[in-house]
Amino acid sequence: MKPPPFTYHRARDVAGATDLVAELGEDAKFLAGGQSLIPMMNFRLARPEHLIDIGRLGELSFVDVGPESLRVGSLSTHRAVETADLGAGFEVVRDTMRWIGHLPIRTKGTVGGSLAHADATAEWCLLAVLLDADIVVAGAGGRRRTIAASEAFLGFYTTVLEEDELIVEVAFGRPAPHAAVTEFAERKGDFALVSAAVDLDVSSGTVSGGRVALGGVGPAVVRVPEAERVLHAGGRAGTDLFETCAQAAAQAVEPPGDDDAGTGYRKALVRNLVVRACEEAVAR
């Protein structure tokens, strides 16, 4: 299980990295933490001819906490976010990090790498979609654009990013004090079978709206409008509302099943994990 050969390039700055990728074309890939790419290369399931190592781009490694926003540089590791003080309202981002693999993966894996890889159970994708984050990308020739998370993930390991585009930061626009992420996997640290994330608008024990996102139910992380409509209809923050919301979420999705975990079971997991996430969110 040795990776296939490639040419190694080390980027000095973002512009250099994106220009080089543009020049090299589709056989070139960015290398950040490598925690998803390198295993695929070791299995020879990915064989980029060029790797552009962006690991030294210190300007992409930051966690910027503002009064009403949170900006995370794409090269920040999961561990850096896990141990950062993210300020009031963004605890959900910090607390979600513990679901990502294990400690030695979190010390190397990066926010941008995770978003760009776009696994259907990736926690960063789930957070970005849940909280309507903005994903800022840089392209060749100094181009920059901001992509709404809701439009970023197209399907199975696929994003709207152009080949020359590099994620530089993810920005969360407003605090989410009553948000929670929960998952189920057979083993600690595994990719989730199903993951559920909710962000509730709640005051004085009454829910007036909220957001629901799911991972592991299709080719990409999704928001579930059907479940959100239940939250917008409002009600007392409690089991009845949460179960109605969760039921709506379960009905809205059709996760692909396999021998060990069929569609029906996965839908049931959706229901139960959404309830659990709601309970954790409201308790926050």
Binding site: Y8, R10, L31, G34, Q35, I38, P39, N42, L51, D53, G55, R79, L103, P104, I105, T107, K108
Partner: peptide, 13 residues
């Protein structure tokens, strides 16, 4: 100082 998988890093990194 951080524990990391040395099979998931190229030496160049």
């Amino acid at each position: 100082g951080d524990p990391a998988r040395s099979c998931l890093m190229f030496a160049a990194q």
